[in-house]
Simulated scan of single mutants.
Amino acid sequence: MRLTTNEKALIGAYMERASQAPQNEKIPLFCDHTLRYLNVELKRLQRSKFTINSITSSLSLLVRYAWQVRGLGPDVFSISHCTSDFIRDWLNYEITEHKISAATRNLRLSHLRCYVVFVAEFCFKACSIYLSLKQIPKMKVIQQEKTLLTEGNISSMLKAVINTEKGKRNVLILLILYECAIRVSELTALMVKDVINIDGKYRLNVMGKGKRQRYTPIKEETAEMLKAYLRVFHESSSPDTPLFYSIRKEKPVALTVKTVETIVNQAAELAREHDPTIPRRVHPHAFRRSKATALYQKGTPIEIVSSFIGHSSTETTKIYTTPSEEQLRKAMEKCGFPDEWKNAKANYTEDDLKKKIVACGLTP
């Protein structure tokens, strides 16, 4: 078990304070501090709404497992139950019963560890629970090839949905996902007021991760479709109305991430009949990844790509920068051998070469 420098300092500080704590310190119930952690601490740390929802889901699943599988209700289940063996059983249960991936399993373990560290501020004995959880290794995640869509794939999907019931709206959703390379959570958060028109040039005011704001330009053709969409669907809307919405109880409500995922999947299924090159699984994030990759392969500097898609570091953007065959060919040409080397002849015999190889401890 390895602890980072920050973890060692944190636990050391807790242990020092724990030596001054009463020996009969009460172990809190697991749910005693969840409300404060989710509603106060995570917001203080400026975690996104998506991250908070993900953490809430992880902790809720553990409480549900303790109650329904282990018979420990919320009025009994405490931090002290979260031993290494107990949590291993829970994670294995999630894998077998809910078919979660290794990556999701690791994420839920990480969420629990962070919560236990927070609880340790109020109950020093939680430090030992944290050390127990550190003994649980993360599962190896097999990196799958990321889905990329060609511009031909995008075109096929647009043609496939244009004549469906909500085709005009869905086409615009697909276009913005690709052309603006925005995250699906950023798209669902857009409001009417986020469509900015300056001297006839349209752009979107996008709020990204970490509350980083960026303005994303929109192509003229897409801007024309957006203006038509606003005329039809937002003629009398207030600025705070969700840009893409569904009607619930006679009020416009922002589309959920799940709804956008369904729109994308349906478009892919319809288009696959005429374009079999469309991948079997298409996620909204594939549009963002494909746009970033296309920009890089066309020679756009990585710094500009990074700024366009809202990354705080070019290191993060590098996962999208798959070089094209043309880029590789040009790179090889730049590294060509000098002319005097091209016709050079070896000044040693094959036997000499074998001797050199053997001298290096290798087998010729």
Score class of each variant (00 low, 15 high):
107 L>C: 09
148 L>P: 05
162 I>W: 04
176 I>Q: 07
94 E>I: 04
165 E>T: 15
123 C>Q: 05
167 G>Y: 02
129 I>N: 13
86 F>I: 09
100 I>P: 00
115 Y>E: 11
143 Q>K: 12
148 L>N: 02
105 R>E: 08
174 L>A: 11
105 R>V: 02
154 I>H: 03
134 K>Y: 12
170 N>A: 04
115 Y>K: 07
172 L>Y: 04
135 Q>F: 06
98 H>Q: 10
124 F>H: 15
87 I>Y: 00
130 Y>V: 05
126 A>S: 12
110 S>W: 04
96 T>L: 05
130 Y>G: 02
142 I>Y: 01
126 A>E: 07
143 Q>T: 12
141 V>G: 00
115 Y>W: 04
141 V>N: 00
118 F>Q: 13
137 P>I: 06
151 E>Y: 04
157 M>G: 07
112 L>G: 07
125 K>P: 02
93 Y>G: 02
96 T>F: 03
162 I>Q: 07
104 T>G: 00
94 E>S: 02
175 L>P: 10
150 T>P: 03
150 T>K: 09
115 Y>H: 05
117 V>W: 08
163 N>R: 11
140 K>R: 04
102 A>G: 02
137 P>N: 07
138 K>P: 01
86 F>E: 08
169 R>E: 12
102 A>S: 06
164 T>L: 09
170 N>Q: 05
148 L>I: 14
111 H>S: 12
90 W>I: 01
168 K>F: 11
137 P>K: 06
122 F>A: 13
161 V>Q: 02
87 I>C: 06
112 L>N: 13
136 I>H: 04
139 M>R: 09
87 I>N: 01
146 K>E: 13
96 T>K: 01
173 I>Q: 05
94 E>R: 01
112 L>I: 13
119 V>S: 07
178 Y>C: 04
178 Y>A: 06
117 V>M: 15
135 Q>L: 14
99 K>D: 07
108 R>K: 10
134 K>T: 10
160 A>M: 10
175 L>N: 13
128 S>C: 05
155 S>Y: 14
113 R>L: 06
115 Y>I: 14
87 I>P: 00
123 C>L: 10
138 K>W: 01
171 V>D: 04
102 A>E: 02
131 L>A: 06
117 V>H: 10
165 E>P: 02
122 F>S: 15
117 V>C: 15
153 N>G: 07
123 C>F: 09
127 C>V: 15
161 V>L: 11
178 Y>K: 06
96 T>N: 07
110 S>P: 07
126 A>D: 09
121 E>P: 01
158 L>A: 12
172 L>M: 08
118 F>T: 14
129 I>C: 06
146 K>W: 01
160 A>Q: 02
90 W>K: 00
109 L>T: 04
134 K>N: 11
109 L>Q: 03
106 N>C: 04
95 I>E: 12
147 T>N: 03
132 S>Q: 12
170 N>W: 03
89 D>N: 05
101 S>Y: 00
115 Y>Q: 09
121 E>H: 13
94 E>Q: 06
175 L>Q: 15
171 V>P: 06
116 V>H: 07
141 V>Q: 03
107 L>N: 11
116 V>S: 11
109 L>A: 01
121 E>A: 12
174 L>H: 10
102 A>I: 00
115 Y>F: 13
96 T>Y: 02
132 S>P: 01
101 S>K: 07
